[in-house]
Design a protein around this nucleic acid. Structure first.
Lengths: 207, 207
DNA sequence: GTCTATACTTGGATAGAC
DNA sequence: GTCTATCCAAGTATAGAC
């Protein structure tokens, strides 16, 4: 489609980088071709040459990074054995995002989406994230009573949604974000479930 | 500040209504003075006469509605006695939002905020929501083991964040939203905690 | 208080030189 | 493949008639 489909083009990469940075720092509303070009110190016209439109650029930028991250987190999730591990990954992902702003960018794109086609594309991508959480959740609760109570799919959906909400709030005022405290709390709950598991399991049949 | 600070002005109300409706249906990116005016079938210039700027209008619209809703939900939350009640309220709020789109509008404003002052104002408003959840949570778990394990503040923050995330996702494709299933799941968990409570409480001291 | 008309600004996008 | 210049559309905002 694009003139330089040699993928790894030097400039393409620079443009994508600037686009994500703009999305993260200034938000979607401010992510104009001119603003992005200014941030990356390149010519505004390059965006249209390489990506056709700003909307296209933003989506491609997200799409490419998502692919990378999905690969990485799928690997990390494969090592999850306990609920504590799962919370640990979430905490790590959030910490990374504070620096890279990738999830923040996703939230921006989701909130700004208006054409149904793009909305669906975003949801399809997000589906991969949910699947990773679901997979980790399944493995983490294999031998706990949670397994028979919380449907994995919905549990994963809820966790993923919560993560989006946290990133949404964190961008408003990083200083005031309580993400760290929330992860601490969840870590505590995870530990408790792990410890109480056997006991509850014993009690469950009476239910 | 505004010319007609008689608050209840007929037109002001019409403008606010149209603004929220536009925010809900088309999202922030499309909520221009022209679009809002078209939706409400009034003159575009009225927005500037009554509110000074589009940004101002959107914030005032949100602010006014938030006040109403906070009042209503604070009352509803006062009647919460169990976790199941809490889930019920959440489900109800979500159902209402599917029609009114108020929370959706909040998410749009949050995502689009860029000036620190407005961000802080939004967070301050959101603080009230968290407080309501926290209050309900405290009452709902008074005599369950959860009380001694989940810090109320963080629990409420997490729940509120999840709610925002769900609304964010629901707007992308209402058909595909799994909000209903999530509430079902939470209802199940709530029931379980209520039933298992005494047992776990017995076990807890051994921890 | 509301409408028409319009000035001004910003952003998307393209043409054409290099 | 990159830059300059420019066109055009859309949006904010104001002036002034009614």
């Amino acid at each position: 489609m694009t003139p330089s489909d040699g993928r790894g083009s030097e400039t393409r990469e620079r443009i994508i980088e600037a686009a994500l940075e703009t999305l993260r720092q200034d938000g979607f509303a401010e992510a104009s071709a001119r603003a992005i070009a200014a941030r990356g110190s390149f010519n505004q016209a390059l965006i249209f040459y390489h990506f056709g439109s700003v909307a296209n650029l933003l989506f491609e930028a997200f799409s490419q990074r998502s692919e990378d991250q999905v690969r990485r987190y799928r690997a990390a999730a494969a090592d999850v054995a306990t609920l504590s591990d799962l919370v640990g990954i979430a905490r790590e992902l959030h910490a990374e995002d504070t620096a890279s702003g990738h999830v923040t960018a996703v939230v921006q794109l989701m909130a700004a989406a208006h054409d149904p086609q793009q909305s669906r594309a975003l949801l399809d991508r997000f589906e991969e994230w949910i699947a990773i959480v679901e997979d980790a959740l399944r493995r983490a609760t294999a031998d706990t009573p949670v397994a028979s109570v919380v449907p994995y799919r919905q549990g994963a959906y809820a966790i993923a949604a919560m993560f989006l909400g946290i990133e949404l709030l964190a961008r408003l005022d990083p200083e005031r974000s309580e993400a760290g405290d929330v992860f601490d709390m969840m870590a505590g709950v995870a530990r408790l479930i792990e410890q109480l598991g056997p006991l509850v399991a014993q009690a469950m049949p009476q239910r």
